[in-house]
Design a protein around this nucleic acid. Structure first.
Lengths: 141, 141
DNA sequence: GAGACATATTCCTTAAAGAGGATATAGATG
DNA sequence: CATCTATATCCTCTTTAAGGAATATGTCTC
C-alpha cells in the first residue's frame, strides 16, 4: 500500500507535460476516442498513445474499448486530490490560447461525436453496426 | 518570451517531488531559512539546497540573504496560476500525515523563529549583531 | 586576513522521461 | 482466414532529474 502523498505526486507528474495537459483539458468536456485526440492535438499516434497509457497507469484517466476504438475519459470517481487538481487546472487553462483553441476545435468536432452512436462513426469511413455495446449502455447512459 | 503554458507546466514540475512539496507546505506558513528547512525535513544539505535552487529558477520560491542565512519564501506576487495551485496544494495536503507532521514540528520551532530578530538566532550558536538588515526592514516589515 | 558557519555549485553516477520508427495485437469486415 | 483499422508495445536514443561527495562562495567574528 502506497503512501497517500504518492498519489498527489503522481497527479503532478501527469500534469507536467503539455500534451498531457491538453488531453486532460479536452477530456474535461467528455469522453473521446484516441483518433479524435490525435486529430485535435495533431501529434503522432505513438505519442498520444503513450501519454494516454501513462495517464492511465497513474489513474488519471480511464479507458474502455468500444468496438475497435478505445474511449478515454476522466475517472468517474476521482480521488479528492485529483478532483481538486483537475478543477484547478480548468481554472488555469482558461486564459491560455493553446487550450482554448483545443476546446474550440473540439466543439466543432463535437456535434458529430457528442453521443456514442456518433462516436462509433469516429474516424472510420466504414459503416458500423447499430447495436449498443456494453460501454455504450453502461458508461455513457 | 515563453508561452504561458510553460509556466503552468513548470509549476507542476516543481510540484512532482515530495521534498519540494514539503518545502512548499512549510513555506506556506511563512519565510524560513535553509537550515531550519534542513532540520525540519531531516535531509542532507545538498538535497535541500538543490531543491530550493530548482524552485527558485522556476519562480516558485524567492530567496533573500539575511546576514549569512538565506531566507526562502513563497513569492510575494505569485502568478494567478501559481497562486491557484498553491492554494489547491494546501487543500490537498491537509489530510496527509507527512505534511501535517511537518507543520506540527514547524509550529514547535516557530516561537523561536517567528520574527526575524529571532531568526537571526537561527541555527547558530554565536551571537549576532542587533542592527537590522535591508531584508529585515523591507521584506518582513 | 584567518577561521567558522551557512549555503551553493561542480562533478559524477544512476534513473526516469520523452521522442520516433517499426512491429504487434485486437476487433471488425468480407 | 485474410485483411483493414485502431491502438499498444518494443527498441533505441537523447534529455532531464535526483542523489551524494567534494569543493567553492559569501558573510561574520576576531
Amino acid at each position: 500500500m502506497r503512501s497517500p502523498a504518492v498519489n498527489l505526486i503522481e497527479i503532478y507528474q501527469c500534469f507536467c507535460d503539455e500534451t498531457r495537459l491538453r488531453i486532460l483539458n479536452i477530456l474535461s468536456q467528455g469522453p473521446l476516442c484516441v483518433c479524435h485526440l490525435q486529430e485535435l492535438l495533431d501529434q503522432p499516434q505513438v505519442r498520444i498513445s503513450k501519454h494516454l497509457g501513462y495517464l492511465k497507469t497513474k489513474g488519471v484517466v480511464e479507458a474502455a474499448r468500444h468496438q475497435n476504438w478505445m474511449i478515454y475519459s476522466l475517472p468517474a470517481h476521482p480521488s479528492p486530490e485529483l478532483e481538486a487538481n483537475l478543477k484547478c487546472l480548468q481554472d488555469c487553462v482558461q486564459t491560455h490560447a493553446v487550450f482554448k483553441h483545443d476546446l474550440k476545435r473540439l466543439s466543432k468536432l463535437r456535434p458529430t461525436v457528442g453521443w456514442l452512436d456518433e462516436i462509433t462513426g469516429c474516424c472510420s469511413k466504414r459503416q458500423v453496426p447499430q447495436k449498443k455495446t456494453a460501454y455504450e449502455t453502461k458508461v455513457l447512459r
